[in-house]
């Protein structure tokens, strides 16, 4: 680990000032410190923002507000989140380990870096870490890499589970800077790699995520997150699906669908949603819509199976909601 300066910020203004002085924000540190140990991240100055008043989870009349410093475990166990936004709670509980969930902040979760082994190994080329150096993952160990949103420069998956649920549920992030606040839909927050895989999101230098907002709606209660992974705890998604449905009388009125483990950013699937909306709640509806999820997918050496697995994952998630939608007798 390279030597670095460390300071604590107790007010937003302190944090901004420190950031302007080449500071990097650190909250739970579960991604950043890990990568500093690997030499992948080499900040000169860390600004501990844990003392900022951004820990609250509040249910507003038309949305849920999650403070950026709320811990994953805290959000997962929040009664309002569990009742009104089950996909968010489920996605969090299926993430990482209990220890990590206790440490990791929600804002940090959204900004976590990929688990691509070539990115995390400074002795390897990686366009994300060193633009222009190449992408060994394309022809290397790539079973867990992306099939959607990839480019010749990068095929790394975005690792967050909860970001998939949030993108499905139309969440926005509130971003603060000395100039004030702005709000950006999470779906537009992330950038696909293209030929600039080192640029992962639209945050400008010194900007800080202060909150996540998830709108209310008739579909959020009927939401779920299904995660397919190689072991049952402490493991990233092979594929995952966040879905939400508003159903009336056996017909789908509204739908939200996003996928994880398969794409370079949390992957909203509006074409799948369109194929669900207005259709009867049925296995054939689910299958037909899910098939669209892999349109345009580009497989690599070891991950072609995801083209088969992703639609099945979506169907499973939709079936889970169908079971819930049946009124209790």
């Amino acid at each position: 680990m390279m030597p670095f300066a460390f300071q604590r910020a107790t007010a937003l203004a302190d944090a901004f000032a420190a950031a302007a002085n080449r500071g990097r924000y650190v909250a739970g540190g579960t991604t950043l410190v890990d990568l500093m140990r690997e030499g992948v991240e080499t900040p000169e100055r860390l600004v501990d923002i844990n003392a900022l008043p951004l820990h609250e989870i509040r249910l507003r009349p038309d949305h849920l507000e999650i403070g950026a410093l709320a811990r994953m475990a805290q959000v997962a166990a929040n009664a309002d989140v569990m009742r009104l936004y089950p996909a968010i709670s489920q996605a969090l509980l299926l993430s990482a380990s209990a220890q990590l969930r206790n440490m990791a902040s929600m804002g940090g979760n959204l900004l976590q870096r990929t688990r691509c082994p070539y990115f995390r190994d400074v002795t390897s080329a990686c366009n994300k870490r060193e633009p222009g150096s190449g992408c060994p993952a394309r022809d290397g160990v790539n079973r867990l890499h992306a099939i959607l949103g990839t480019s010749e420069h990068c095929v790394a998956t975005h690792a967050s589970d909860v970001a998939v649920a949030l993108v499905a549920l139309d969440a926005s992030v509130r971003i603060a800077s000395p100039e004030g606040e702005r709000r950006i839909p999470l779906e537009q927050f992330y950038r696909v790699p293209g030929d600039t895989p080192h640029i992962e999101h639209v945050l400008r230098p010194g900007e800080l995520i202060v909150a996540i907002e998830v709108p209310a709606g008739p579909h959020t209660e009927q939401s779920t997150y299904v995660k397919v992974r190689d072991r049952q705890s402490y493991e990233f998604a092979v594929t995952s699906a966040a879905v939400a449905l508003a159903v009336d009388d056996g017909r789908i009125l509204d739908a939200r669908v996003a996928a994880g483990g398969v794409a370079t950013v949390p992957w909203r699937m509006r074409h799948v949603e369109a194929a669900l909306i207005g259709q009867p709640l049925s296995a054939s509806t689910f299958r037909a819509a899910a098939r669209l999820s892999v349109e345009g997918a580009v497989p690599l050496t070891f991950n072609a199976f995801k083209i088969e697995l992703l639609p099945r994952t979506l169907v499973r998630a939709l079936e889970t909601l169908e079971t819930l939608a049946v009124p209790a007798l």
Binding site: V141, R231, S233
Partner: peptide, 14 residues
Amino acid sequence: TNANLAEYLVPTNA
């Protein structure tokens, strides 16, 4: 490429 305990998988309690 998986020389760590996150990516070299051993069983968890779950």
